[in-house]
C-alpha cells in the first residue's frame, strides 16, 4: 500500500482519508480483516498511537468494526459503503470544479464539458 503525507496537516486525519480511499478502491474489501495497528503503522511509517487514533475514528464512523480478540474488519454495511463512495465522489467533483473555475469556466461550461466528455466514454 502506498501512503503519502502532506505538510502541516495532522497525520491522523490524513491516515483516515487514505484508509477510506483503500476501502473505496476495494484494496480493503467489505468484511476483510485489516492488518494489526503495528503493521499498518510500520507500513505507513507513522507512530502506532497515531494509527490507533485513526482506526478508532473510522470505527466510530462505522467503516470498521472490532471483534474482540480477533481484530478489526471492514464493514459490510452497504449503506455505509455507498455513503463513503458518495462522499469521495463529492470531493473529486469539488476539486474538479475548483480547477476548472481557475481556468475561467463557469458552472454551465463545466456541466457541458462533463456531458461532452461522458458522450465520448465507452
Amino acid at each position: 500500500m502506498s501512503w503519502t503525507f502532506k505538510e502541516g496537516v495532522p497525520i491522523y486525519t490524513q491516515l483516515i482519508e487514505q484508509i477510506k480511499m483503500h476501502i473505496a478502491r476495494g484494496e480493503f474489501s467489505p468484511g476483510d480483516q485489516i492488518p494489526p495497528v503495528r503493521d499498518l503503522a510500520m507500513d505507513a511509517g507513522v507512530n502506532p498511537n497515531t494509527m490507533q487514533r485513526a482506526l478508532a475514528e473510522l470505527e466510530r464512523e462505522g467503516l470498521l468494526y472490532s471483534v474482540r480478540t480477533s481484530g478489526r474488519f471492514v464493514t459490510e454495511d452497504k449503506t455505509k459503503l455507498d455513503e463513503l463512495q458518495g462522499l469521495l465522489a463529492e470531493k473529486y467533483i469539488e476539486d474538479m470544479f475548483i480547477s476548472l473555475r481557475k481556468i475561467g469556466m463557469n458552472k454551465e461550461d463545466i456541466v457541458a464539458a462533463v456531458e461532452q466528455h461522458a458522450k465520448g466514454e465507452k
Binding site: 505538510e7 502541516g8 496537516v9 495532522p10 497525520i11 491522523y12 507512530n47 497515531t50 487514533r53
Partner: peptide, 12 residues
C-alpha cells in the same frame, strides 16, 4: 502532541 501542533499551526 505533534498532530495538535500541525493542526494549530498548519505547519509540519
Amino acid at each position: 502532541n505533534a498532530d495538535e501542533l500541525r493542526e494549530e499551526t498548519g505547519k509540519n
